[in-house]
Write a protein that binds this DNA or RNA. Structure first.
Length: 511
RNA sequence: GCCGCGUUGGUCAAGGGGUUAAGACGCAUCCCUUUCACGGAUGAAUCACGGGUUCGAUUCCCGUACGCGGUACCA
């Protein structure tokens, strides 16, 4: 195997819809590995299935990667020397290799129609073999260049009979390779089917394309999800036949990210109320919107962090990592081999940690976005920064900034009086009238000063400060939450504070 | 069915022949706080099972069970 070549890794999604958590983690591990080793991260679009073309899906993938900060070094948007980076545009390249395999006896033409394939499956299906494969046991009974005469084959091709090219899996050989995460993995070739390499429309299947492109693009390390492990022997053999095992990239198959039942799916998200895609995705056919982590209020820093730790850790107790720390500390050897169940509670914890960790300046723009989406206008940036600093500890998702800070920028529409109304009395009313008078005379308008005079007036009125602090909070905030009341009043300013107290007092008096 | 990969608290997990089997999330209780959080403390909760190997297995080997993945002219 090539050990000294420049590190080049690739993420090869098929642009068919939303970009899944597991997909982003695959991107991340590829990216981290590339950056750690000073290599290249390539994005290759696997769009060989024309029936599954989804408009906008490719752009969406770029948007997601951009949001995550995992931009490729080479892609359809940033071509390197190994383009094109879209497989549909490389169509012509694959046939040659498929023909080469046939010439060497490693593949064959197959003319079986879909109906004939169905029939074969029906015929051989039984309890012992519920899903018959097109393999060494049946290939000699099918319509292909192994069973037909050379003349017949030529004639069929000449008459434009649709055909595919299948790999001819050897019988009873052991194919093994060394997976960077799992160690040696081996397969008996008799149990693997004769996968289609080139489809009737002339497009390659994933199996051919991945090998050819990894070779042509000089990929040094091929990383992908565990769902690909069963077809690895096909890829290994293709490497052996076409380019030589010594040129083959190093492999690693990442553990799956599981949902409550099996491989995490879009459905799980819907069912259990958490996002599965990186960003919002709208199905163009059904119009169905699937919510993304971004829109749910996740920071990309946290999203990356949580994904990195789902299947990997650095062996210490550290859990919060910046992307630079991840690049520094990542190693394939510490990636788990077992699947990890996604835990949304823990995901939120990561986000909370990142909100607490980031300073107001770095949070600013994203908070403005949240507020403006809810029609809260922010004019005063200095105020905004102070507000963020004051409330960020109590925001788990970015969207929480709305509830936690909107009242600084506009008078609350709903004042929840239920916690104070039952205990409201003349004594408290008098207190607030006096407090208001005091506020009017106050010059410094600073939290400590406000608190001191508040307590003084309370004791003069024979009230415990606690009895009137909650009412003040509700008058200013609208509910039982938020930072220290006097910090709130200080930031609200004299005029606004007085106005809010007056307004609510009026309601309470009227009741 | 067959093939492959897995299996440490509910979840993420460290550890890997001798440990009181870390830590985190979540949960519970308490402290702090006259709100809600943050923070701090404490607690409940784990090596799937059976055989080996060994003086000694959670750790190594083999089975079994279970889970997941694959079994398409989809990736």
């Amino acid at each position: 195997m090539n050990t000294e070549k420049r590190v080049r890794v690739r993420f090869a999604p098929s642009p068919t819809g939303g970009l899944h958590l597991g997909g982003v983690r695959t991107v991340l591990y590829n990216y981290l590995y590339a950056k750690k080793h000073g290599g290249d991260f390539i994005l290759r679009i696997e769009d060989t299935d024309q029936t599954r073309f989804v408009p906008g899906a490719e752009e969406y993938i770029f948007d997601c990667l951009k949001w995550c900060g995992l931009n490729p070094d080479e892609s359809v948007r940033n071509e390197g020397p190994y383009g094109p980076y879209r497989q549909s545009e490389r169509k012509e390249k694959y046939r040659l290799y498929a023909e080469e395999l046939i010439a060497e006896g490693h593949a064959y033409y197959a003319f079986d129609t879909p109906e004939e394939l169905d029939e074969m499956r029906r015929k051989y299906k039984n309890d012992e073999n519920p899903q018959p494969q097109y393999d060494n046991k049946v290939r000699m009974r099918m319509k292909n260049s192994l069973t037909l005469s050379g003349e017949d084959v030529h004639e069929l091709i000449r008459s434009n009979t649709p055909y595919v090219i299948r790999i001819k899996m050897p019988e009873n050989e052991t194919v093994s390779f060394n997976d960077m995460i799992r160690g040696e993995v081996s397969f008996n070739t008799s149990l693997v089917d004769d996968k289609v390499l080139l489809k009737a429309d002339g497009m390659p299947t994933y199996h051919l394309a991945v090998v050819v492109d990894d070779h042509l693009m000089k990929i040094s390390h091929a990383f992908r999800g565990e769902e690909w492990l069963p077809s690895a022997p096909v890829h290994i053999l293709l490497w052996k036949y076409l380019f030589g095992l010594d040129k083959m990239p190093h492999w690693a198959h990442f553990p799956l990210i599981l949902g409550p039942n099996g491989k995490l799916s879009k459905r799980d998200g819907l069912k259990y109320g958490f996002p599965v895609f990186a960003m919002n995705w709208t199905d163009s056919k059904t119009g169905e919107l699937t919510e993304g982590f971004k829109e749910k209020g996740f920071l990309p820093e946290a999203f990356i962090n949580l994904l990195a730790l789902l299947g990997w850790n650095d062996g210490t107790e550290q859990e919060v990592f910046s992307i630079d720390e991840l690049i520094e500390k990542f190693s394939m050897g510490r990636v788990h081999s077992a699947g990890a169940k996604f835990d949304y509670e823990k995901a939120k914890w990561f986000n909370h940690e990142w909100i607490k960790k980031l300073d107001a300046g770095s949070l600013k723009e994203r908070v403005v976005e949240v507020l403006e989406a809810k029609n809260v206008k922010v004019q005063d940036e200095k105020l905004l920064l102070k507000v963020i600093e004051l409330v960020k500890d109590r925001c788990t998702l970015l969207t929480d900034f709305y509830e936690q800070s909107a009242y600084f920028f506009k008078t609350p529409e709903n004042i929840d009086l239920s916690p104070i109304q039952p205990k409201w009395n003349d004594k408290k009313n008098l207190f607030f009238i006096e407090l208001l008078r005091n506020f009017e005379l106050e010059n410094s308008w600073e939290a400590h000063q406000l608190e001191n005079s508040f307590k003084e007036i309370a004791s003069v009125n024979d009230l415990k400060p606690g009895e009137v602090m909650l009412p003040l909070r509700i008058m200013l905030v609208g509910g039982k939450f938020g930072p220290h009341v006097f910090d709130i009043a200080a930031l609200l300013g004299k005029a606004e504070t007085i106005q809010r107290v007056k307004a609510t007092l009026k309601v309470l008096e009227g009741a």
